[in-house]
Amino acid sequence: MSFLEVCDIHAGYGGADILKGVSLSLREGEIGVIAGPNGAGKSTTLKAVFGLLHVSKGAILLDGNDITNRRPQELVRAGMSFVPQEKNVFPSLTVLENLEMGAFVRRDDYGHMIERIFDFFPPLREKAHQPAGELSGGQRQMVAMGRALMTEPRLLLLDEPTAGLSPKYMSEIFEHVVAVNRSGVTVLMVEQNARQALAIAHRGFILASGRNRHTGTGAELLADPEVARSFLGG
């Protein structure tokens, strides 16, 4: 029984459809990676799942419930969180305030969650009272993920979390993604660094021109010579 089921969706930004039939399926507790060349519709897929653009055809199911074209606020309450690729922190708010804003929909006491996020991302603890805009790129990415985790989501959507980071930070972020996933959160991420990402993925989806091209487990895709030739740079 799959947890997230995306069935043949078509979507775009008002003009022509960018997604022309994308399907994904993810079981609870897995890491799913969407990879593919530029313009394949990777980020568009993620945004469509999170209700940021209109899905004209197809359906999206979360845990068996139809969530197609629901508004982001409702999806946050339904247990989803989204980390955009850029502009993903509130720069003038402190790290702590960023986390509090992540928990905006919660009316209960979320103090323990802040502690857990500081345990996940130790560098943030000492910077708790610094404005997020003053942090380094990697630390900002941590704040962004921490903000998204505050609602204790069951499904975390990450849009290119390593974009623009140095290789050292990149592997650190991948480690964090694995750690978050081990704590029980299903992750669906878009990645440019397909090789590294597929290495930690349970399921991989390679898109091209708005359609599925290859689907399989991370290991299968890494082993597939055609995938390697066309999409992983040999």
Partner: peptide, 10 residues
């Protein structure tokens, strides 16, 4: 000019 694409309602 096309209207700025209808931003998602909130």
């Amino acid at each position: 000019a096309p209207r700025p694409s209808a931003r998602e309602k909130n």
